[in-house]
């Protein structure tokens, strides 16, 4: 009687152990498959999001497509197929690890904690974490949040920072963790939360689809500086070198600045709003000296 009871478990165990091996050489994998899967975000405006035709667009998406061009040249695969797989802040890292996604360029912060799990490319953007709130709310900084409902997106560095802030300063905030930035903004816009904590560039991006953008304001002293990188599998030097040189090339050639102007200083879909998000000193420095250092 013992054996049949155990066997499904044993079978399951074998299945699992077998399941968790992923090829480390992405270029090899892409070459064999004849296709690459890019992870993208659904509402990280203006980095990676849907326009009104459900096409994926954005600053990070443009960079990802440049990397794909470089892969095509490197592997001499003219008709490399590109598949798009939407990811959330919560599942992007497991999906890179389990091989569903080969490269994710969205709005992912490169930090030392995550470096234990995945690899990061040369930094593509630098942001600070701040607050989006109604002009009329009277909230000026993080200390004004005591006792209030505050929303952030699940799985982001902001979520961790906000929880820590809440513990350290005993602010007694009620933290709502939404699925993605779109849902976070919805939570804010419908009045469920008094403020939305997130990377400043994304907050300006969310403003771009507000019903009345003039009602909202970004406030607060940045709680942290964050370096966005594209995510790839850990210990995959050949692929990382290719991605890094491509991105660094964009920056030193001045092409990255053009992308910046296109997404942050011109009208963008879906509503044709201009984010007017000026190039920061950190970004100027990054474009001058591309690197893959984490800021945390």
């Amino acid at each position: 009687m013992k054996l049949p009871r155990l066997s499904p478990l044993v079978f399951g165990g074998v299945l699992l152990v077998g399941a968790v091996q992923v090829p480390a050489d992405t270029l090899e994998k892409v070459k064999d498959a004849g296709s690459i899967t890019l992870g993208h975000r659904e509402s990280s405006i203006p980095f990676s999001y849907y326009d009104d035709q459900q096409r994926v667009i954005g600053y990070s998406q443009d960079i990802a497509l440049r990397v794909v061009d470089a892969i095509k040249r490197e592997l001499q695969l003219r008709d490399l197929q590109v598949r798009l797989n939407p990811v959330t802040s919560q599942n992007r890292i497991p999906l890179i690890q389990n091989g569903t996604v080969d490269l994710e360029c969205g709005s992912t912060t490169n930090n030392t904690e995550r470096q234990k799990q995945v690899g990061f490319s040369t930094t593509i953007f630098v942001v600070g974490t701040r607050l989006l709130t109604k002009k009329a709310s009277g909230i000026q900084d993080f200390s004004d949040l005591a006792g209030k409902n505050v929303v952030t997106t699940a799985g982001t560095t902001s979520e961790r920072l906000l929880r820590k802030l809440n513990e350290d300063k005993q602010l007694n905030m009620k933290i709502i963790s939404a699925k993605d930035h779109g849902e976070s903004f919805l939570t804010l816009e419908t009045g469920r939360a008094a403020a939305f904590m997130m990377d400043d560039a994304l907050l300006y991006g969310e403003l771009a689809k507000a019903k009345r953008p003039g009602d909202w304001v970004v406030v607060g002293i940045p709680q942290s500086s964050e370096a966005y990188g594209c995510v790839l599998r850990k210990d995959d030097p050949a692929f990382k070198t290719l991605v890094d040189t491509t991105i660094a090339g964009l920056m030193t050639s001045g092409e990255a600045q053009k992308l910046y102007a296109k997404w942050f200083e011109s009208p963008i879909p879906p509503k044709g709003l201009n984010l007017n998000f000026p190039l920061s000193a950190e970004m100027v420095e990054l474009y001058r000296n591309p690197n893959d250092r984490a800021l945390q």
């Binding site: 890292i93 497991p94 690890q97 799990q117 699940a154 709502i176």
Partner: peptide, 23 residues
């Protein structure tokens, strides 16, 4: 879990997110 209530299956997803020990 889809509206954010931190019940069991939501916690499992949060655990995956924080620890990367999905299995």
């Amino acid at each position: 879990s889809t509206i954010g209530l931190i019940e069991l299956s939501r916690q499992s997803q949060q655990l995956v997110d924080y620890t990367a020990q999905a299995y």
